[in-house]
Amino acid sequence: MSRAFRRSALIGAGLATALAAGTAVVACQSSDGGGSAAPKLSVADPYIPLPATPGGMGAGYLTVRNDGGADRLVKVTSPAAGSVTMHRSTEKSMEEVGELAVPAHGSLDLARGGTHLMIMEWAKQPALGDELELDLEFAKAGTVVVKVPVKPLTYRPGS
């Protein structure tokens, strides 16, 4: 978060916009002078389904769009939860992943049945309508702060 003050300021401005919009669209730029290799990230359709057990195991889903060069999501934290880890569901199980690629001019989809965030140790039991902060840390673009709405358990974007 504190890697570059200017970037934080930029993200802060982005966050203000995101708060108004409900979803975050934050443009990030690397400090290496730009060029075609710099990732240009935005986050779309973030949501946390209401955990099936109140205050219990939760998931987070979102799409990271990238209009620039490749990047990697290396860590996710949240002031709203003690533990946020990245997992990939497989046919029969799920496995924790250390980082996730955000391809150049592509997207990283965290979606049901695939790659997702596993969220535990809620600071406060999530309720419908809450907006919880997730801090997405990218290898190049730095930290992107997203406000994520808590949606019904069976919600899907666009439904």
Partner: peptide, 17 residues
């Protein structure tokens, strides 16, 4: 299992809907 964040609640939730 109930500590399953993704596939289990999604599947059972969808059947519930």
């Amino acid at each position: 299992y109930t500590s399953c964040p993704d596939v289990c609640p999604t599947t059972m939730g969808d059947i519930g809907v």
